[in-house]
Design a protein around this nucleic acid. Structure first.
Lengths: 118, 118
DNA sequence: TGTAGTATGTACTACTTAGTACACGGTGTC
DNA sequence: GACACCGTGTACTAAGTAGTACATACTACA
């Protein structure tokens, strides 16, 4: 496993733990619903990242953006996938069009869409 | 299996076959690189849709849009996923913003982006 | 009628996913 | 020195993924 997923989670968890004992590996594992040994392996990148559901729970637990954590795990949220699958040609074209544009261009687009002014 | 994926592929292949013998199940199977028995099961929805690579090959073979065929198989092209994973927050926001907008709105957006006028 | 091509059915396999169960050894503390 | 956590190591599993291999049975035609 060469994703930085585990590292990232561990670092983040340890940071929270510095101020709050409730962020021990065991307690976090229990709250997100996995065995401590499993979370341990995940954090050491000894096993691939867990399922989407667990990652989302983990993101919530760590105060992180779920999409970012999923991305780190090499996944894309299933609701986004569903949206794309509903109109595959449309979204495929759009995403391929945008993928090489700079952040600020995409960001401006997002804002314009949100404000309905485009 | 209750996807219409198999049905769709079979219908499409039979249609091509009406004009061209090279579209028998066996020959198509060979060209896309699977065993005939496997393609048979796929077309009868007796087994889940094949891997992305085989679906893309199948789309090419059938003259269909790969993204559409992938969507029918409940998948999203890995290059789109990669694009999203590179900037998860940006794309997640955009897609969630667009997912309930009507086709024509999204389409217009796609065109505007392509023409660089937005 | 045999043989070439066609679709299908059955059995099997190797790999991956997504974990659990449980024991072990370390650390702190009362 | 016993109790309570802590992280980790080892072993296991149940289900899904992505097929292959081989045998069977039908159809067409020469």
């Amino acid at each position: 496993m060469t994703t930085g997923f585990g590292d990232y989670v561990r670092t983040r968890r340890e940071a929270l733990r510095a101020h709050d004992d409730r962020y021990s590996l065991r307690q976090v594992a229990q709250r997100i619903g996995v065995e401590p040994s499993f979370l341990s392996k995940v954090e050491r990148d000894e096993t691939p990242p867990p399922s989407e559901a667990k990652i989302v729970a983990l993101a919530e637990e760590l105060g992180e953006d779920a999409d970012v954590l999923l991305a780190l795990a090499g996944k894309v949220s299933s609701d986004l996938q569903a949206a794309i699958r509903k109109r595959p040609e449309l979204f495929a074209t759009l995403i391929r069009e945008l993928k090489d544009l700079p952040d600020r261009a995409v960001l401006r687009l997002v804002r314009d869409v949100r404000d309905g002014k485009w």
